[in-house]
Amino acid sequence: MNRNRLLLVVLLPLLLTLAAGLGYAVLSLPEQPQYLQKLVMDNMAESGVSHPVTAVLLNFRAYDTLLEMMVLLLALLAVWSFDMTDPKHKTAPNQVLDTLTRLLTPLLILVTAYLLWVGAHAPGGAFQAGSVLAASAVLLSLAGWRLSNKLTALPLRIVLVAGPGVFIIISALTMLLEGQLLKYPVAQAGLYIVILETFATLSIGATLAALFLGVRPGKTDKDKGGKHK
């Protein structure tokens, strides 16, 4: 107890100092700088989409997004390597959850498609769509639904690497065509972005849901966690 009080006496002033320092830094920032924003706005016409955030994510800084897909995949590999066991809940889901899940899943998939498509000109895009897809998969798994064993082996892994894989293929393609990593031909930039986003959505959804379940599917041939595409 005494140690805790000492900790508080030392810690609180330190944290308040930190907060004051950070607050001062924020308040003393200059008016909005124009440099990066202007750069983005000036090049919007070449980006292939009309929403600036999507343009930054999938075109101007697509390299970051590529690495981010890799981070997701690495996190999943790390989680799978821990060899977790599936908590087997044998109880059937109650009827409300069951029915609601059946009703919501198609709706969530529709929302996924909408978010993916609307990302070109309004807030939305691969990450938001992928999260909604993952949410529907989590809902399904909470209702006791499991992907059949036939699909957990290779097909699931193909879906997981589809996003990063297509990203790498397009990176290589742009290297060959334009001589620069992820520099799309201006005329087809929109097409490239839609292809990238579609596969990224599938992979992000699958990866997030698999992270939630935590169990490497197909670890043994008995009912190990699965998911839905």
Partner: peptide
């Protein structure tokens, strides 16, 4: 709005 920090936040949330 400056899109660059917003894009960073989306990336950051997923990570």
């Amino acid at each position: 709005a400056d899109p660059v920090p917003h894009a960073m936040v989306i990336t950051g949330i997923v990570v």
